[in-house]
């Protein structure tokens, strides 16, 4: 066991626990909010984390034995705790400044097309921007652009929105068979691609949509049907021969607009689901409804009315920076209330 102190709260955790996991444990036990934000780590997948650098923390005491501080901020998702370690996250202004830098990097090439993005309202980058970012951008250059690509008839890839978190790559490596999905090219021209733009044709491929923290991978069967905050999430299940059949239905009236896996409070899926449940079972009668979903993640869908308004205002603010006409949209098309 190792004793670690994060933002002045001490917890004892098994050896091998990462700083991030320890922080999440503290939040779960104390109802605090000290866990650093994560964009690439995914506890349900192996070898994730380390890429986005949003989860950085500062280690002000390495361990009981060797109390020297670590010279640079470390990725909390990839750094294991030592006995006697002292970590600063929200209580270090320098660290928060460094994180704001990371957030700015993630946003400089992001198209800010939330008004027409299906992920708006449940996008981790939106959350990250509001909670850890700066008000205005200092980036004055054209943003990089890619053409949207259909990955088969069910999944859409908007590479412009991708933050190269590698989650979808690891999903395809680890839970689908056949490695046809990966990263091509290098640096800021790197892109997610499937083998010669082949469809990922696989029972579990749809899970890339759920693991994607932004609107880069979206469900083509749900595209533009509704804003997510106008749908009602309910938990439901069915007897599925391929997966657990435990899903979340996104309903509008009696219509099932979308089926996703259930997500935990950290925004990660509880159990991966199969493509049949996700794409083909869009009738309420396919499902046994359990009841309204508890959504504890901080996304807009879980906010109360007042906060929801804030978010909509935020969307409007972004909208002002964003040129809808370039996309051939008419007046009013960008109003989030205009569905």
């Amino acid at each position: 066991m190792a004793k670690v102190t994060i933002d002045d709260i001490t917890i004892e955790v098994p050896d091998g626990t990462t700083i991030l996991q320890a922080a999440r444990m503290i939040d779960e036990q104390h109802g605090t909010n000290i866990a650093p934000p994560t964009m690439c780590y995914y506890s349900k997948l192996k070898t994730t984390g380390g890429y986005c650098r949003t989860c950085i923390v500062s280690v002000t005491q390495g361990s009981e034995k060797d109390p020297r501080p670590m010279p640079k901020p470390v990725a909390s998702c990839r750094t294991t705790v030592m006995d006697g370690m002292v970590v600063r996250n929200n209580t270090s202004p320098e660290l928060l400044e460094a994180r704001a830098g990371v957030v700015e990097f993630l946003l400089i090439n992001h198209p800010l097309d939330c008004p027409v993005c299906d992920q708006a309202g449940e996008c981790h980058l939106q959350d990250l921007g509001y909670e850890n970012g700066k008000e205005a951008t200092r980036y004055e250059f054209p943003r990089r652009e890619f053409e949207p690509i259909d990955i088969g008839d069910k999944i859409k890839l908007h590479m412009n929105r991708c933050i190269l978190c590698y989650r979808c790559v690891k999903t395809c490596e680890q839970i689908t068979d056949g490695r046809v999905h990966g990263v091509i090219n290098r640096g800021d021209h790197a892109e997610i691609s499937t083998y010669i733009e082949k469809a990922i044709d696989n029972d579990f491929s749809g899970n890339v949509i759920d693991v994607c923290p932004v609107g880069a991978l979206t469900d083509r069967t749900f595209r533009f049907k509704s804003r997510v905050w106008f749908t009602n999430p309910v938990d439901a299940h069915r007897d599925c021969p391929t997966c657990s059949g435990k899903v979340r239905l996104w309903m509008k009236g009696k219509d099932v607009l979308r089926v996703t896996a259930r997500k935990d409070r950290w925004g990660e899926v509880e159990e991966f689901i199969c493509n049949t449940c996700r794409f083909d079972k869009k009738d309420v009668t396919d499902w046994r409804i359990e009841g309204p979903s508890k959504i504890s993640h901080h996304s807009v869908i879980s906010q109360n009315h007042n906060e929801l308004r804030q978010v909509q205002l935020g969307v409007r603010k972004q909208l002002q920076q964003w040129d809808g006409h370039k996309y051939g949209l008419g007046e009013g098309a960008l109003d989030p209330n205009n569905q």
Partner: peptide, 21 residues
């Protein structure tokens, strides 16, 4: 450096291009 960044981590992937610009 912009051309040679592998693109895995955000500060290097995005920052190298920004500095060049």
């Amino acid at each position: 450096y912009h051309h040679e960044s592998c693109g895995q981590c955000s500060p290097c992937r995005e920052g190298t291009g920004w500095m060049e610009k």
